[in-house]
Computed example of a mutant assay.
Amino acid sequence: MTPLATVSGPSEGAAEPAIPPAVAARIAGAVESSQSAGTRRAYGSGWRRFTEWCALNGHVALPAHPVTVAAYLVDAADTVTAVGEKEYAASTLSAWLAALNYYHRTAGYPPPSAHELVAATLAGIRRDYAAAGDRPRAQRAPLLVSDIRHLVDTARFQCGGWADDVLERRDTALLLLGFAGAFRRSELADLECRDVTLHREDGLHIRLRKTKTDQEGRGVVRALPATDSHTTCPPCAYVRWVQVVSAFDAGGRLSVIRLLRGRDPFDEHVCRGGVPRTAARAPLFRAIAKNGNLGITPLSGAAIHKTIRRRAERANYDADLVAQLGGHSLRAGFVTQAFRNGADAHAIMRQTGHTTPAMLERYAREHAPLMRNAVIEIGL
């Protein structure tokens, strides 16, 4: 089914008007653009799984009877791995149900979750999961300030040539900007050179043209100040990386080699001067080949996830901890560190863009449980 179903499905009262194919295609495109690419992929995957299950079990997928949807949820909840663990988390079942809701609504049918049987089935599954302690929500381990310092110091220490320098400059900028800006990995991946401005008072101004909570693209600016130490200064890391980007875009690999071989030692701030000119719409963070060549496409969210793990591995982090790290570790680390440093929820929300303090409390409960906790004042 395509988003055009919103104009071709059942309607209430009015007859469907005849419109030119070009207009219908434009409507379909607008409907598709109303959701992020990630949401569309998730809904599409969830819908395909449901239609395949219905075909296998002899059920009608659209419109799906409430009993069919309830049976689908129970079947998924009862699926276990080879070692007897639940295959799917309760949150996964909720995501699949959201996909069913979407495809039913776009076809003009009531969403399955609105039916009492379906809602009660999912609620009962959640209770069963909670009572059995199955499939707890897997949180990415946060990277704190001490971790970020260690990762960037190790990256610089391990450089053995100009190609290593290119990778170090990109990864250091990724770590420091991602942490200080509390960015999601998708937000880092979407950054273009035009989005970052070196401000003489504030450090960096980074404009997010669209975020998870701003799908209509009103935009927001986050400030990343310069720090006392040049080694962990986000504006310095940005300047060092943009020097590489500008050199490569202007003269390719040879220009980058000349830049890095003739560079001054990085022993003081470099964010006090100017920033090299870059193409406005060029992606800021890009893939880098083993020979040091920069790609022309933006670094993906999955690649950012792998970059963080790779830097932790090279810094000799425990393998179990590395497995808990990922793209969200930078954002989770900012929130956790801020709580540990005594910041209140509303100050943290200014940087993270969270809409309610309740979302932040999860980080405090899991990663900073002693902050503002009466247990430290009871006098034992």
Rank of each mutant, 00 (worst) to 15 (best):
296 I>K: 14
235 P>G: 03
33 S>P: 02
77 A>S: 15
307 T>Q: 13
174 L>D: 01
69 V>H: 01
158 Q>P: 11
318 D>A: 12
363 Y>S: 02
52 E>D: 15
17 P>H: 02
345 A>Q: 13
309 R>D: 13
294 L>M: 06
323 A>E: 07
342 G>N: 08
180 A>Q: 07
118 V>E: 00
187 E>Y: 10
29 G>F: 03
367 H>E: 08
258 R>A: 13
100 L>C: 10
333 G>S: 05
210 K>N: 05
253 R>V: 04
42 A>F: 05
279 A>T: 14
11 S>P: 06
270 V>I: 13
105 R>M: 12
358 A>L: 07
26 R>K: 10
361 E>K: 02
93 L>Q: 01
326 G>E: 01
137 R>V: 15
15 A>W: 14
119 A>Q: 13
372 R>K: 10
243 Q>M: 09
56 L>Y: 11
68 T>L: 06
10 P>E: 08
170 R>A: 07
367 H>T: 06
53 W>Q: 06
163 A>M: 14
167 L>P: 01
346 H>F: 15
247 A>N: 00
5 A>G: 15
130 A>S: 11
262 G>Q: 07
183 F>H: 04
250 A>I: 10
156 R>A: 12
17 P>F: 01
117 L>I: 12
211 T>V: 06
35 Q>V: 15
24 A>L: 14
116 E>P: 12
242 V>Y: 00
19 I>V: 14
243 Q>N: 14
340 R>W: 00
122 L>Y: 03
79 T>I: 06
150 H>I: 09
2 T>A: 09
195 D>F: 07
109 Y>T: 04
86 K>L: 10
41 R>M: 12
